[in-house]
């Protein structure tokens, strides 16, 4: 571990293990997980942390592990590293995010813990049914990602806790897709929607999820999608009902980027498109 200390400004501390990181945590300390959002909060928004603890050199936060049933992504993996993720929907999503330069620094954990309502990785991971591991002074816990976000910039994490990994179930016969609306090729999503479809052995829908970003204070899992599609043959599904459910689940705001009305409508359009793309992917998948 290296500590760089030169003045009264908070120094960037660089723990090598999770245990060291947790031990460094103190009043006013913040976790640094790439810093591309955090730095702008310091530089522009007047955030004045007492200490910065860099999590990006902790090997256990930087691993990708695939077991039979799930893929675990370390929270300190950079977006650039996730471009090669074994989860195609995640890799596709990452390539649509920010700039190639920012992707070198920004991390999975940073994107989720910054908890921007427009965070692109949130809907795709919600749609994939991800869970997250959290380490803290009292030990570790694992919770569904649905419920992790509590408001703009807020999560269930306490100041001493670290998001360590994201677990993505990888069932057979599942596909997912993320679609977003942006002004130019580099932009915050005006609206984003991700969908996943899982089939049973008879090619009927076993499970389905739709999640949205930039349409509510938190990234949103649309309720009722699985119930609406379950048991249906995947070919020729009509997603109009799901689009309506997405529109109803929204609580968007109007800002410089888009109006609430537009966002709500687009939640429906993108829901239909994400589900259609996921269904198209299924068509290319042999059904047992």
């Amino acid at each position: 571990m290296t500590i760089i200390a030169r003045s009264t400004e908070p120094v960037l501390q660089r723990p090598a293990t999770l245990t060291e990181a947790l031990a460094l945590s103190g009043p006013g300390s913040v976790w640094w997980a790439g810093g591309t959002d955090l730095w702008l909060m310091i530089d522009r928004k007047g955030l004045r942390p007492e200490a910065l603890i860099d999590l990006t050199h902790i090997a256990e936060l930087r691993a990708i592990q695939t077991t039979g049933a799930e893929t675990t992504l370390g929270a300190a993996l950079t977006l650039a590293e996730l471009e090669a993720s074994p989860l195609p929907a995640v890799a596709d999503t990452v390539r649509s995010m920010c700039t190639v330069q920012t992707r070198t620094l920004a991390t999975l954990g940073g994107n989720l813990c910054h908890a921007a309502p427009s965070a692109d990785l949130a809907p795709v991971l919600l749609a994939l049914g991800a869970e997250v591991s959290i380490a803290g002074p009292a030990g570790t816990r694992r919770i569904p990602l649905d419920g992790f976000f509590t408001g703009p910039g807020r999560t269930v994490l306490s100041a001493e806790e670290i998001l360590t990994a994201v677990h993505v179930p990888t069932p057979q016969r599942q596909t997912a897709a993320y679609t977003r609306i942006a002004r130019t090729v580099v932009d915050i999503a005006l609206v984003g929607a991700a969908a996943s479809l899982t089939l049973d052995e008879e090619c009927h829908v076993l499970d389905a999820r739709v999640a949205l970003c930039a349409v509510a204070p938190v990234p949103l899992l649309v309720p009722g999608i699985a119930e609406a599609l379950k048991g249906r043959a995947y070919d020729g599904l009509d997603f109009a009902g799901c689009a309506k459910m997405a529109e109803e689940a929204c609580a968007p705001i109007t800002d410089l980027r888009a109006s609430a009305d537009y966002r709500r409508r687009m939640a429906g359009v993108l829901t239909r498109r994400a589900l259609t793309t996921a269904a198209d992917h299924l068509r290319r998948m042999p059904c047992a």
Partner: peptide, 18 residues
């Protein structure tokens, strides 16, 4: 370039480059 990868150096603390 940081270890061969592009980075916008305005978004990076010098300390991160250690």
């Amino acid at each position: 370039l940081i270890d061969g990868r592009p980075v916008t150096s305005c978004l990076m603390l010098a300390a991160q480059a250690e």
